[in-house]
Amino acid sequence: MENNINDDNNKKTLILSILGILVLIIAVVGVSFAMYKFTGTGTQENVITTGTVNMSFDNEEGNNISLTNEYPMTDEYAIQSKDTHKSEFTITANLSVESSVAIAYSIGIDDQNIEEGETLKKEYIKIALLDDDNNILVGTPNGLDSQELTGGTLISELESQQDNLINKYMLAHKLITGSNTSDKYTLYAWVADTYNLPTGNDNKDSTLDENVIKTEEDDKTKQEKTTKSETFKFKLIVKAKQLLDEEEYEEYQQ
């Protein structure tokens, strides 16, 4: 009786094992040998190609302001002779996608690239910036909306001028939405008439005028005063940025 029970169990185990192997074989073979098979491969490629933004700041060598033997001058004279102390530069932008992309750019003076003299500081350098249509971007116009330049602006007065791209000495900013844009600017700079030329010595003889040197030679007395040359240097900077949404766009338009 007990032997019959063991035989039955062995048979059941054997049947289940065979059944399991069959199911496995059917599953594998069934996939491999489906009765109907369809494979559809797309013929149209969905493509995303990034657009291109190409900007340049073109300030030809030799077209920067490089003045020597300059003296303080009135705004009137500086403007009258402005062609002798100007720099022209162009900002171009080529956008591959028109209308959907807006680029904002700002022109400023790089604080890191201002080199002041001992006394010739930004409080004594005046500048003016005009665009290609003679709109006065920096400087004093002769009345509201006038395109007649009558004065410059001290660089020090621009220190608080800022926007989202330039946090100091911001001169101008613009939005570009067209595919090809070329903006030409003219920068003027001169020494303000409030600057006093410094002297090269500190000899202070109370009987003489300040910083006058007195020498005696061959029965003659010579009094002399010489000024000292100083240099002020600065570089422009252009920062550009793509605007991502309408909110940012409107913010720049204001």
Binding site: F57, N64, N113, I237
Partner: peptide, 10 residues
């Protein structure tokens, strides 16, 4: 962009 050559007044 930085201006390549500085503006200079001496």
């Amino acid at each position: 962009f930085d201006q390549a050559t500085a503006n200079s007044i001496k």
